[in-house]
């Protein structure tokens, strides 16, 4: 009974703090509004997106310029409506981003807290491996793996991205845990016989949660960035699954001049990408300040 009241109060306090931070920060307010509008667009748009939008090919109405035949932004090179393709792509990119960020956050919080808490040889080996992995060219390795796979489904893409790009997050959580481990409250809990997993998840975790939130936002934006970058180059998703990156692929190679002549091919996609990634990072910072009021700017 007591616990429930406490939790409720924490939740309402978070929302109140979040609002207060938004009122102070015009940019964050703008980012939130744009993100909400975009999310509504994507969610409501799903109703109108035909299921075969990726595989349909309608050569007669392909590559139409904007405002022809009732297509507001024209059609893609396979003849699908550009706006609907954009909605489908944005939702695919978001699913990939969220999937990767959730997986990486779970891995990094558990693994990072455990190696930071116990230290010793596990920590030593893990850190050497992480340091080594951090100097490796992740994008090139991912590009090679994606190209050997010849087109992946969204879910296998999420899995590969998450499995190969957790090291920096684990290192961050480990560093945060190390600074908490020697605090008095952890020592007291240890002495009074609290099991280690309880110390980790009810003692240390709440104290590092503000960074976990902003790190989640950064990872989310970063994963969308990696995914769009690689699919722009033409590696990753299988034919028929579009993402914000595959929509820009038409601009690479010999048709580079269409960047200028056919602005509608990239400006809307770019705007959606900017609102998504930048908005998510800004919101993550606001959420961080809302949780940890010491970081709030006056």
């Amino acid at each position: 009974m007591d616990m429930e009241i406490k939790k409720q109060r924490f939740g309402s306090k978070f929302i109140k703090n979040f609002w207060r931070e938004l009122e102070k920060d015009n940019l964050a307010l703008l980012a939130t509004i744009l993100l909400i509008v975009l999310f509504l667009f994507i969610i409501i748009g799903q109703i109108f997106v035909p299921t075969d939008i990726g595989t349909m090919s309608n050569i007669l109405s392909a590559n139409l310029p904007p405002l022809t035949n009732g297509h507001i932004l024209g059609t893609t090179n396979s003849g699908a409506d550009f706006v609907l393709t954009l909605i489908a792509s944005a939702s695919n990119s978001l699913i990939i981003g969220f999937g990767v960020a959730i997986l990486i956050t779970i891995i990094s919080v558990t693994f990072g807290m455990i190696i930071g808490y116990f230290g010793g040889w596990i920590d030593w080996i893990a850190m050497r491996l992480i340091d080594f992995w951090l100097v490796m060219p992740l994008l090139m390795i991912l590009a090679i793996i994606f190209s050997t796979a010849k087109g992946l489904s969204i879910w296998s893409l999420i899995l590969i991205l998450a499995v190969l790009s957790w090291p920096p997050n684990v290192r961050l959580i480990r560093t945060l845990t190390l600074s908490e481990v020697n605090r008095d409250y952890v020592q007291a809990a240890k002495i009074s016989g609290t099991p280690w997993y309880k110390i980790l998840f009810t003692g240390i975790f709440p104290n590092i949660s503000s960074t976990v939130i902003s790190d989640f936002a950064l990872t989310l934006a970063g994963s969308i960035g990696i995914e769009t970058s690689l699919t722009y180059l033409g590696f990753g998703l299988k034919h028929g699954t579009s993402s914000l990156g595959t929509m820009l692929t038409v601009l690479s190679g010999s048709s580079a001049s269409s960047v200028y002549t056919q602005w509608w091919l990239w400006i809307p996609v770019t705007l959606v990408l900017i609102i998504l990634t930048f908005g998510i990072v800004v919101l993550g910072q606001v959420a961080r300040r809302a949780i940890d009021q010491r970081q709030s700017v006056s």
């Binding site: 990696i226 769009t228 722009y232 820009l248 601009l251 960047v259 200028y260 990634t277 990072v281």
Partner: peptide
């Protein structure tokens, strides 16, 4: 700087390309 780090930078390359090669 937050924006340039959050957004995948290749989309800005299109902007620079249009500005300084075509316009």
């Amino acid at each position: 700087n937050t924006m340039t780090s959050a957004v995948p930078s290749f989309v800005f390359y299109f902007v620079m390309m249009v500005l300084f090669v075509y316009i």
